[in-house]
C-alpha cells in the first residue's frame, strides 16, 4: 500500500488512536482504585495533621503521621463530620467527607454546603474547617484547626495544584504554616476576618492583629491564602455563635 495515500494515512491515524486510547483507558481504570485510596488517605492525613502534628503516639509508640497511619486512626479522633448551611444549621443527608468544595464554590452562598470536622485529641476539642480558593496559577486549598473557642488557630495545612516551586509552593512548608499557629480569626469588632498574609510584616510574633508575614516573591499566592481564609471561615460564624451560646456542639 502506498504510504503517502490518503487511505493509508487515515487507517494509520485511526489505528494509532484506538491503540493509544485503549492503553491509556486500561491503565487509568485499573489504577483508579489505588489513586482514589491515596487521595482519601491524604485527605485524612491533612485533616489530622492540623491538630495532631507530624507524629502521633499510638499504644505508647511514636509514629510518623503517614497516610496509612492517618487512615487507621482517623475515626478515633474525629468525633463528628457535620454539613452546615450558611445560617449555621445542619444539613441532613450529606456526607461531609465527600463534599466537593470546588463544586460548592461555584454555587450561590445560600445553596452551598459547609463541611466541618469536630475532633477530640488529648482531651481538647478542635474544629477543623476545610478551605479552598485560588492562588496565582490554579487552586489552593487547606484545612485550619480552631481551638475550642472557635477563634484561636491550633494549626493549618495548605496545599496547591500548581503554584511556582520555591515561591508560591512554599505555602506547603512548615515554617510558613507555623506562622498561623495561635493567630485569631475574629477581629476586634467580633467579625471573622481570618488571617491576612502581609508583605513586609513588622509585627513579629504578635498574635492579636489577624496578620502574618508573607513569603517574598509569592504575593499573589499569599493574597489567595488571605482571601481563602476569610471567604470560607466567615460562613461558619452563625454556627460558632450558636455553639458558644448553647455551650456545646450541636449534634445530629
Amino acid at each position: 500500500m502506498d504510504k503517502n495515500s490518503n487511505a493509508y494515512t487515515f487507517i494509520f491515524a485511526i489505528a494509532m488512536v484506538i491503540v493509544v486510547a485503549v492503553t491509556l483507558s486500561f491503565t487509568a481504570t485499573s489504577l483508579q482504585p489505588m489513586q482514589a485510596e491515596n487521595v482519601r488517605q491524604e485527605k485524612m492525613q491533612s485533616i489530622l495533621s492540623t491538630f495532631v502534628g507530624d507524629s502521633v503516639t499510638i499504644d505508647g509508640q511514636k509514629q510518623e503521621l503517614s497516610r496509612s497511619v492517618a487512615s487507621k486512626i482517623y475515626d478515633d479522633f474525629i468525633l463528628e463530620e457535620l454539613t452546615l448551611d450558611n445560617k449555621g444549621d445542619l444539613k441532613e443527608g450529606e456526607n461531609a467527607f465527600q463534599v466537593n468544595l470546588a463544586k460548592q464554590l461555584s454555587l450561590e452562598e445560600d445553596k452551598q454546603t459547609f463541611p466541618l470536622y469536630v475532633a477530640e485529641f488529648e482531651g481538647s476539642r478542635f474544629y477543623v474547617v476545610p478551605l479552598r480558593g485560588t492562588g496565582l496559577w490554579d487552586a489552593i486549598w487547606g484545612y485550619v484547626a480552631l481551638k475550642e473557642d472557635a477563634n484561636t488557630i491550633e494549626g493549618v495545612i495548605f496545599d496547591h495544584k500548581g503554584e511556582t516551586a520555591g515561591l508560591g509552593a512554599e505555602i506547603t512548608t512548615d515554617w510558613f504554616q507555623e506562622r498561623f499557629v495561635n493567630e485569631q480569626i475574629y477581629n476586634e469588632s467580633g467579625e471573622i476576618v481570618g488571617v491576612e498574609v502581609v508583605k513586609g510584616y513588622g509585627g513579629g510574633d504578635n498574635k492579636d492583629d489577624n496578620k502574618v508575614d508573607a513569603i517574598s516573591g509569592a504575593t499573589i499566592t499569599g493574597d489567595g491564602v488571605s482571601k481563602m481564609m476569610e471567604n470560607r471561615l466567615k460562613h461558619y460564624k452563625p454556627y460558632f455563635e450558636k455553639v458558644k451560646k448553647s455551650g456545646k456542639v450541636a449534634t445530629r
Binding site: K3, N4, Y8, T9, F12, A13, M16, V17, V20, T23, L24, T27, A28, L31, M34, Q35, N38
Partner: peptide, 27 residues
C-alpha cells in the same frame, strides 16, 4: 509512519507516555 502526519504521531506517542508516567506515579 505516513510522513504527512508524522508530527501528530510523535505528539500522540509523547503525550501517551507522559500520561502513563503520570498515572503510574499517582498510584
Amino acid at each position: 509512519i505516513p510522513s504527512r502526519i508524522r508530527i501528530i504521531v510523535q505528539l500522540v506517542v509523547v503525550a501517551a507516555m507522559v500520561i502513563l508516567v503520570d498515572q503510574i506515579l499517582k498510584a
